[in-house]
């Protein structure tokens, strides 16, 4: 293994791990103010919105409708109350069929 690549990977590992680990240590046993607690409770849903859009529209470089179709399929299947795993398999199936037949 080349030493410059090795140290690059070690450096990447450290700067990735620190933000993941520090909150657990810094906030251990601390009661946050209610407002901050409320903000943190909101974080998952705001993050999910940001993780899905706009990235899902660009899963196929030249075809924005491909992403729209995938998103639509996922929304529909999960709105019908299916487990997450079926939402995943369902949207993969819909897009595979779309590529084969269109």
């Amino acid at each position: 293994m080349r030493s410059d690549v090795f140290w690059m990977i070690i450096g990447m590992a450290i700067v990735t791990y620190l933000p993941r680990m520090l909150p657990f240590v810094l906030l251990k046993g601390k009661e946050l103010p209610p407002f901050i607690q409320g903000v943190l409770r909101n974080v998952p849903y705001a993050t999910l919105g940001a993780l899905i859009f706009p990235a899902i529209l660009f899963i196929k470089d030249d075809d924005i409708w491909y992403g729209v179709l995938g998103a639509g399929a996922a929304f529909l299947v999960s709105y019908l109350g299916a487990n997450v795993i079926f939402v995943v398999i369902g949207s993969i199936a819909v897009l595979t069929l779309y590529s084969y037949f269109l």
Binding site: K60, A71, A74, F75, N83, S91, I92, T96
Partner: peptide, 13 residues
């Protein structure tokens, strides 16, 4: 290509 939707579909789910 179609499996590229997997993680986004999971987020939606």
């Amino acid at each position: 290509e179609s499996m590229g939707v997997a993680l986004y579909a999971m987020f939606i789910g």
